[in-house]
Write a protein that binds this DNA or RNA. Sequence first.
RNA 1: GCAUCGGUAGCCAAGAGGUUGAAGGCGGGAGCCUGCAAAGCUCUUAUUCGUGGGUUCGACUCCCACCCGAUGCUCCA
Length: 495
Amino acid sequence: MTITFHNTLARKKEAFTPLESGKVRMYCCGITVYDYCHLGHARTCLIWDVARRYLQWRGYDVTYIQNFTDIDDKILNRARKEGITMEEVSERFIAAYFEDMKRLGIGEADVYPRATHTLDGIKRLVTELEEKGYAYPSQGDVYYQVRQFKQYGQLSGRKLEDMQAGASGRVAVESAEDTKKKDPFDFALWKASKPGEPAWESPWGSGRPGWHIECSAMVRDRLGETIDIHVGGSDLVFPHHENEIAQSEAVTGKPLARYWMHNGMVRVNGEKMSKSLGNFTTIRDLLDGKWWFPNQTPRDKPIEPMAIRLFVLQAHYRKPLDFTEDALEAAANGWQTLKEGLLFGDKYGKQLNWDNLDILATGTNLWAERFTAIIDDDLNFAGGLAVLFEIAKELRKEGNIIVHEGKTETDSLQLYHQWRSLVELAEVLGFTVEPEAESEATEGLSDADIETLIQKRTEARKAKDFAESDRIRDELSAQGITLIDQPGGVTKWHR
RNA sequence: GCAUCGGUAGCCAAGAGGUUGAAGGCGGGAGCCUGCAAAGCUCUUAUUCGUGGGUUCGACUCCCACCCGAUGCUCCA
C-alpha cells in the first residue's frame, strides 16, 4: 500500500517515497515565541504530530524537528514593553508552549532548534549566498536577490510580474528598508542592529538574522540538504517557504524538501484566527474554561484536551476549520462516545473473563486495514475516525447491555480484539484515556446505602407513593447514580 | 487585480465518473421499556452533493463560465 500526500509544490497528490528507505526526515515550521499559543497553533502542532505518529506506526523511522523563532521584532517589542530582555520573553513562552502542548497530548519533536542557537549555520549560509551571487550587502543589511533565482515562485505558484502588477497599488509608501534593496522583491537575510537591540557579530557588522534564513539553516544543520517532508501552516507558503527554497536551493543546488505540506487555518466567524486580528482563543484559556467569542460573554466551560483533538482531526488538514461553540460541543460529545469505547476493557474486561482468555496473535485486522487504507490517502484522519467510531459505538452498546442485562451474548474474545483494535488505532491518532478518571471513588453513598434507598423507593412505588419514590430517585441522581427500572419491578443502578 | 483552496443533510464533516445504501460525528424524531421519567435498545433523519452550461452511454465526482467564502500577495501556524 502506498501513502500519498498532497504536495503543495506539485499542487496534487503524489505517492510518498522517502529519500532513504524506511526513514523520514520531517521539519515543521514552529512558532515565534512572543505570546501564548492559540487554537490555530494547536491545529498545526496537532496535525503534524499525528502525521508523524502515523508514519511511525506505518513503520517509518521518523526524525521530527520543529523550530522556535526567538529573534524577532515582536519579541523585542514585548520585551521593551515589559522592561525585560528578549531572551526572557522567549524563554517564558517556550516554557508555556511545552506546558500547553503537553496538556493537549502532543508529542515532543526530536529537536527544537532556536534561531539564537543557529547563528553559525545562518552566517555560513548567508556567506555562501553572497559568494554565489545571490546575496548582496547594503548598509549593514544583507539582502537576497530574488531575480537571481529563476525558480522563484514555484511553490506558491506566482510570477514576479504578476505580483508587481498587483502590489503596485498598495506599495506606494517606501519604507527605509526598500531604499536599501536593489529590487522591492528582495528580502533581508541579515539586518543591522539598532542601538539597544540584541546583536550578533558577523562579517557584515553587528546585527541579527532575518526571519526566513533561520529555517534554511536549521534544516541544513539538523537534517541535511534535502529532507523528505516540510510542513507548516498554509499562511507560510508565501513568502516564508518560498524564500526558504530560494535560500537553500541556491546554495545546495538540491531540492530543500521533496514534499511540502500545509494545513488550513482555523477561522472565527469566517475569518482567520490570528494574533493580528485579535480574534484568537489561547489553548490554556480553552482548557481552563476561560474563553469566549468576540462580543460575547465569557464561557466557563473547560474543554477537554481530547475534545480539542477530535475537533481538529474531524476536519481534513488542508481545509479551513471553523471555530464555533456548536462544533466544539459536538466534539466534546463525540469524545464521550470514543472514551466509553476506550474504557470498555477497563470496565468490563474482568467480567468478561479476559484474564483467562487464550489470546492468540490475530491475523488480519479488518479495522486496521480500513483505517490504514483511508489515512494512507493524504492523511484522511477524519475518515480514519469513522472507523474508530464504528468500533467505539459497538463497544459502548455492549457495555450498556452488560450494565442493563448483567451479561452479553457476544463472544468475549471477539470483544477483546475489538477493544484492543480500538485502543491501538486511537493511540495512533493520539487519543488516550486514563482509566482512573472514570472510577469515581466511593465517596458519598456506599453501595449498601444505595441499596437501602432503592429498597425504600421500591416500597413507595408499590404503595403508589410516587412523590416519595421520585424524591429518592432525585436524591440518588444528585449523587450521580442512575436508576434503571426494568419490567417486573426490578431496579438496577449504576454510578 | 493576481495566485491558491473550498462550497456535500438542521449543524460539523469524509468521499468520489458507473448499484454504490453519498462515510462518520453532533443534534432531532418515532417506537419499545417505565406509574411517569431517566438510562438503555430498535428504527429513522440528503432521489441529492453552490448555479448554469458542456464532455460522456453515464457526473456530485472531469471541462468551461458564473455566484459565494477563505487564505496569500505585509507579521502570522
